[in-house]
Design a protein around this nucleic acid. Structure first.
Length: 189
DNA sequence: GCTGCGATTATC
DNA sequence: ATAATCGCAGCG
């Protein structure tokens, strides 16, 4: 079942936890969400849109929940967020890790430019277990910034997979965020 | 215009 | 532990 708008326009921390175990569909590739981090601009110094910082880059973060915020990091990688809550809220959830569900071969080609056999030195375990890796594996780039998750190319599915135990902890690589470094908004299983 | 740096990754 | 690599935000 495809998730509709009402799934995304809720409290960000609830959406973040509910995202775990859901299936992300991108063209013909499917992956299951394993690790996420929430970012809430109104109170979160780690968020790009902290303090209503509305720039060309962060504009999408202020869209209504159910859109995708993609930005480039370190000049080399893209990170993908799912925008949550109401319009002008400025919050979202970063996808930090997923696991392959369908069309793993295409993911290998996207990641390494070669077939899975030839890329045998690389392990499936490392295929998409990071924010920059998963966008590469799914071929998600700047062109997807602002895209709706209610469309055809990119959307989420609930296949009734049950996550037994959700783990939580502090977010990764946000040392600059002062008190927000201690917010336990990273969820995984 | 300039500058410093980042919600990362692969490799040493 | 460190290089790779460039768009963005802040400043002026």
């Amino acid at each position: 079942m495809k998730l509709d708008k009402s799934f995304y326009t809720r409290d960000t921390l609830e959406v973040a936890q509910d995202l775990l175990g859901k299936v992300l569909v991108c063209n013909d590739i499917k992956v299951r969400i394993r690790e996420v981090e929430a970012y809430i601009g109104a109170i979160d110094k780690a968020a790009h849109c902290y303090g209503q910082r509305r720039t060309k880059r962060t504009e999408v973060m202020f869209y209504e929940g159910g859109h995708v915020y993609v930005y480039m990091i370190y000049g080399m990688y893209y990170c993908m967020n799912i925008v949550t809550g109401n319009a002008d809220e400025g919050s979202g959830v970063l996808l930090r890790g997923v696991e392959p569900v369908g069309n793993i071969d295409a993911m290998f080609v996207n990641r390494y430019g070669i077939s899975r056999e030839i890329a045998s030195k690389y392990q499936i375990k490392n295929l998409c277990n990071g924010p920059g890796k998963l966008t590469k594996a799914l071929n998600i780039t700047k062109k997807d910034n602002g895209r709706s998750l209610l469309g055809e190319r990119l959307y989420l599915e609930d296949d009734h997979f049950v996550v037994k135990q959700i783990q939580k902890g502090k977010r990764i690589n946000i040392d600059y965020a002062e008190e927000a470094v201690d917010f336990e908004w990273r969820y995984y299983y």
